[in-house]
């Protein structure tokens, strides 16, 4: 029994697993991001990931028991990241359906009030309702100052920033205002709200309007993933400090290396 355990989670197996995962990553790089995400969401991929997490937990637990804390932190940290990811992936099957959808977007023009999320290339598929409502107060685009190159080419300078100022109304609370900028998402009721994109179109009267697209994402496994990142990082830090404590070997003692 003990032998099987060490064969399944031992160093030799770990070398093979690292090589296999490396090759699999490259294979997924060739199929492109969208297809790779779809492949990884299929049950076999989820099952293999769960198996990987199990092996990591077993090994991490074993090294923890042996008081090799740096190794335990690295393996358990990786396990937390995988389990956290699996939590997010399996949430639609495990949720009771009362927490709102996991992901969706809204396209709005100034003044719109909405609480339904959509998906698809043209945001035409309904995915569910948010537990709060969003009103777009104003969408603003800032440009860089026009340079001499821009002027001689007769073009607009590139965009510096675009942001949506929204008013959030949670049930039973006072409405409040948030700014949503690229790289500065807002966090409301478990949802991160992202400034995804913007565009120009016409309203029903034929007048030009500028719309903003906000994306709403809820990920129940996120905290576990972050915890895993932190643990993994501390583990690798301890590991490298340990490696540096081993002094560069003096040229003297030769034998003890058997081939």
């Amino acid at each position: 029994m003990k032998n099987y355990f060490h064969q399944a989670t031992g160093l030799g197996m770990a070398v093979y697993i690292c090589c296999i995962l490396s090759a699999a990553s490259i294979a997924l790089a060739f199929v492109g991001a969208e297809k790779a995400g779809e492949i990884m969401a299929t049950p076999p991929a989820l099952g293999l990931s769960a198996l990987l997490a199990l092996l990591l937990i077993l090994r991490g637990g074993f090294t923890l028991f042996n008081r090799r804390y740096y190794s335990a932190m690295m393996h358990l940290g990786c396990a937390c990241v995988v389990v956290g990811w699996l939590t997010g992936q399996t949430a639609p099957y495990l949720d009771q359906g009362d927490k709102g959808p996991l992901k969706g977007s809204i396209a709005m023009v100034d003044g719109d009030v909405m609480n339904a999320l959509w998906e698809g290339a043209y945001l035409t598929n309904y995915v569910g309702k948010l537990p709060f409502s969003v009103k777009l107060d104003k969408f603003i685009i800032d440009y860089y100052a026009s340079s001499s190159v821009d002027q001689s080419a007769g073009r607009m300078p590139p965009i510096k920033e675009y942001r949506s100022r929204v008013t959030i109304t949670e049930p039973g609370k006072e409405p409040y205002t948030k700014n949503i900028v690229v790289n500065q998402p807002a966090y409301v009721c478990g949802y991160h709200i992202y400034q995804m994109s913007w565009g120009q179109s016409q309203n029903w009267q034929g007048q030009p309007v500028t719309y903003t697209v906000l994306q709403f994402i809820r990920d129940p496994g996120l905290h576990l993933v972050y915890f895993g990142f932190g643990t993994l990082f501390v583990g690798i830090l301890l590991f490298s400090v340990r490696l540096f404590k081993v002094r560069s070997p003096a040229p003297a003692p030769l034998p003890e290396v058997k081939s």
């Binding site: 690292c18 090589c19 991001a33 969208e34 995400g37 690229v182 990920d219």
Partner: peptide, 29 residues
């Protein structure tokens, strides 16, 4: 996560970076 909405996007460059990371993890084992 902050900019694109998810911590892992299966982007080709991410996958190659992960593959590189795995090679060195294999080296240490």
């Amino acid at each position: 996560k902050i900019c694109w909405g998810h911590y892992w996007q299966w982007d080709p460059k991410e996958m190659w970076s992960l593959a590189t990371w795995m090679v060195y993890a294999g080296y240490f084992h």
